[in-house]
Amino acid sequence: MRADARRNHDRLLAEARTVFAEHGTDASLEDVARRAGVGIGTLYRHFPNRHALMSAVFEDAVNELLARASELRTAPNPCQALLTWLHEVVGHAAAYRGLSRALMSASPDSALSRCGTPMREAGEALLTRAQKEGTVREDVQITDLLQLTHAIALAAEESPGDPHLADRLLTLTLNGLKH
């Protein structure tokens, strides 16, 4: 990629992070382009659709969560490691209004949905370890847990007057996982 194209790409990502955090994932892509100092055509050359841009924006967050899952795989308490990671997943999802809704409704072949594969794999490793220890029920699946974390983040987003709602709902949900 040419140097000017790389700069445009990087500026678009930086501005998209800011705009999505401030206004949610339904924010105007024209606003993202304008803030980055480029035309909307340049944005679409780099990111063919909203989901592609969202996927690129959230890649850093996904990488952080993957690194954290890797760290937690050797934690002394496998159940607590899983619970810690799921709390962090909810926290990341809550940072961008609309992310949870977009993840829950993304088509399986979309760029945004493909971000989920490494997340499922990382969560599966933590879940399996807790299940082998006997502290988490065997019938729990990581796909269900990730859907629940997105639903909890969405519920918290819809109730901005209750800053502790996500923690309460996640704690309630996670208590149901244990033997």
Rank of each mutant, 00 (worst) to 15 (best):
M1T: 07
M1H: 05
A3H: 15
A3I: 12
A3E: 12
D4W: 00
N8M: 03
N8A: 14
N8G: 06
R11K: 11
L12C: 08
L12P: 14
L12G: 10
A16F: 02
R17M: 06
T18L: 15
A21T: 08
G24V: 11
G24L: 07
T25E: 01
D26W: 15
S28D: 10
L29W: 08
E30R: 05
E30L: 07
D31S: 09
D31R: 04
D31V: 00
R35T: 11
R35E: 15
A36N: 02
A36S: 10
G39P: 05
G39E: 01
G41F: 04
G41H: 04
T42H: 08
L43K: 09
L43E: 04
Y44K: 04
Y44W: 06
Y44S: 02
F47K: 11
N49I: 10
H51V: 05
A52M: 05
L53G: 13
M54P: 10
S55H: 13
F58N: 08
F58I: 11
V62I: 07
N63Y: 08
A69H: 02
A69T: 08
E71G: 02
E71L: 06
E71R: 06
T74I: 14
T74G: 04
P76D: 09
P76H: 13
C79W: 08
Q80D: 10
Q80S: 09
L83G: 02
L83H: 14
L83C: 04
W85R: 02
L86I: 07
E88K: 03
V89L: 09
G91F: 05
H92D: 00
A93I: 08
Y96R: 15
S100Y: 01
R101H: 12
A102C: 04
P108K: 06
D109F: 06
D109E: 12
D109I: 00
R114A: 15
C115K: 15
C115Q: 15
C115F: 01
C115M: 13
G116D: 12
T117G: 03
P118R: 12
M119K: 14
M119R: 15
E121Q: 11
E121M: 12
E121L: 13
G123Y: 01
A125E: 11
A125C: 08
L126D: 02
T128G: 01
K132R: 12
K132W: 03
E133V: 05
G134Y: 10
D139Q: 14
D139C: 03
Q141T: 09
I142H: 00
L146Q: 14
L146C: 03
Q147C: 06
T149D: 03
A151E: 05
A153S: 12
L154K: 03
L154E: 10
A155S: 13
A156Y: 01
E158S: 08
P160K: 04
D162L: 03
D167L: 12
L170P: 02
L172W: 14
T173I: 11
T173A: 14
L174C: 15
L174E: 13
G176H: 08
L177S: 09
L177W: 10
K178C: 02
K178V: 06
H179F: 01
